[in-house]
Design a protein around this nucleic acid. Structure first.
Lengths: 246, 246
DNA sequence: GAACATATTGTTGTCTGACATAAAATTACT
DNA sequence: AGTAATTTTATGTCAGACAACAATATGTTC
C-alpha cells in the first residue's frame, strides 16, 4: 500500500451531517449545551457550520434518534436530560431481534438468574424511600380492581423498584427490557391462573419482609421461590394457550 | 371530548419522517427486510410512500442512527445485522452522562448481581461441550504470553461461555454489553495488579470445579467471592490511575 | 388603560429541482 | 477477450420556496 506519491489521497470524507452531529454531540457531552436548554436554531447552526440546512437537519435527526435532542416544531431544538429510554429501547430492540423462538420461558429463566441477586443487594442497600415505593406497589396490587394488564403493570413495578433499591445503577437498565419484552404475557398469566394475584401479593410481602430485615440471604431465597412459582404459572399459561389453539 | 361534528379534527400528525421511519423499522423487526439485504433506493421509497426525498432521507437518517441501517454512497441502503454496539453505545453514553464519577465499580457491582446466578445455573445445565470451552479459556489464560488486552479478552471469554452454559438464551445477550463496556478497563487491571492473572486462573478453576460437580450453590458462592476480589482489583486500579494523574 | 383580536416574526416540516460524487453497469476500443 | 471510457444509478449537498406552528408585537375596542 505504500507509495512514493508526494500527496496522500484526500481522506475518504465523512458525510457532513455526521461531522456536524458529532460536534453537537461533543458539545452536549462536555456540557457546553446543558440539558433542558435550547440550542441555536437551524439557521444559526447553518451559519456557524457554513453548511446547508439539509445537512444540519440530518445531523439533528441523528441526535434526536439517539435521544440527545428533542425538536419542537415552531419552537426550537432542546437538549434532553438523557433518559433511560435511550438505553432500554436499543436493548429491547436488540433482544426482540435476537431471540428467535418462543421466549416466554427464557424470560422467566433469565429473571431467575438476575432477580435473586437483586433481592440480595436490595436487602443490603435499600433506603426508607425504597420501602415506601415497594409497599405502595404491594398495596396497589392488593387493592387493584382493574383488569389483568393493570395487575401486570403493578407486578412489574414492584420488581423494577426492587432493582432500584439495589442501588446499582445498571441493573434497572437491564431488567426493564426483560420485563418490557412481555407486555401481554404477564396479563395472560393473571387471566388464566386464578391464584396468580393472591400468590403475587403473598410472595411480594415475603420478599419485602426479608428486605426490611436486611436479611440478604433470605431475600434471595424468597425471590428464587417466587420465580419458581412464576415459572409454573407461565407453563400453565402456555398450556392453556396451546389448548385454546387446538 | 365527544362532539357532534361530522368530521373529527385531523389528528395531530406526527412528522412524516417519523411515520416513515416507524414503518421501515416495523418491516425490519418483522423481518420483511432481512439483515444484510438491500432495501429500495431513496427514489423508490419516495414513490412507495408518496413523499419527497427529504422526508425519506430524514427517516433513513433516524434508522441509521439507531443502528438498523447502513447507507453506502453510490450503492444503496442496507439492513444491518443489529450489532451489540447499538446497545453498548447508548449504555456507555448514558452512564458517562448520568454518573458523574467513574462507572467502573458500577459495572463490577452489576456483575456481582448477575454472574453468581449464571454460575448457579451453569452448574445445573451445562453440557460437555461447554466444559471443553471453559477449560480452553482457562488454559488459554494460563498459557497466555500476550499483552494485557489479550488476557482481558480470555478472561471475558470464560465468563461469556459460562453464561452460554447456563442454557439461558437471554443471559449472554445481557452480559455481553456489560463486558463489552470496558475493553480497556480490564486490561488496566491486569497491567496494574500484579497478581491479577494468577488469581483469575485460580478462581476460574474453582468455579469450573463446582460446575463440573454440578454443585450449584458452591458455584454461586465461588463466583461471588471471585467478583469480590475483582472489585478489590478494580479499586486498586482506580487508585493507581488517580495517583498517576496527580 | 386593559382585554381581546389580528398581524408579524421566528422556527421547524416538507417539497422541488439541481448539481456533486461514488459505485456499478454498459459500451467501445484494442 | 480484456481493458478503458462512458453512461446509468444512487447517495450527498445545496438553494429556494411555502406550509404549519408558536411566540411576540400590534392594533382595535371597550
Amino acid at each position: 500500500m505504500s507509495d512514493n506519491n508526494m500527496f496522500s489521497p484526500v481522506e475518504n470524507r465523512e458525510p457532513l451531517s455526521k461531522v456536524i452531529a458529532l460536534q453537537i454531540e461533543r458539545a452536549i457531552l462536555t456540557k457546553q449545551f446543558l440539558p433542558g436548554s435550547k440550542i441555536p436554531s437551524e439557521f444559526e447552526l447553518c451559519e456557524q457550520f457554513s453548511v446547508s440546512r439539509t445537512s444540519v437537519r440530518e445531523a439533528i435527526q441523528t441526535l434526536t434518534a439517539q435521544g440527545l435532542l428533542t425538536v419542537i416544531k415552531g419552537k426550537g431544538i432542546y437538549v434532553n436530560d438523557i433518559s433511560i429510554e435511550s438505553v432500554v429501547d436499543p436493548l429491547h430492540k436488540y433482544l426482540t431481534l435476537k431471540l428467535e423462538r418462543e421466549y416466554v420461558l427464557d424470560i422467566v429463566h433469565a429473571r431467575q438468574i438476575i432477580e435473586p441477586g437483586i433481592a440480595y443487594y436490595a436487602a443490603l442497600n435499600h433506603t426508607d424511600e425504597d420501602l415506601v415505593q415497594l409497599r405502595n406497589d404491594i398495596k396497589g396490587l392488593e387493592d387493584c380492581e382493574g383488569g389483568y394488564s393493570e395487575l401486570a403493570k403493578l407486578d412489574t413495578s414492584f420488581h423494577m423498584h426492587l432493582a432500584k433499591a439495589s442501588r446499582n445503577y445498571v441493573m434497572p437498565l437491564l431488567l426493564e427490557p426483560i420485563h418490557r419484552l412481555n407486555p401481554d404475557f404477564k396479563s395472560f398469566v393473571y387471566a388464566t391462573v386464578g391464584e396468580a394475584k393472591e400468590m403475587a401479593v403473598i410472595w411480594h410481602k415475603k420478599i419485602i419482609d426479608a428486605v426490611i430485615d436486611r436479611d440478604a440471604e433470605k431475600a434471595r431465597e424468597t425471590m428464587q421461590e417466587h420465580l419458581k412459582i412464576a415459572e409454573k404459572h407461565a407453563e400453565m399459561m402456555l398450556a392453556a394457550a396451546n389448548k385454546e389453539k387446538l
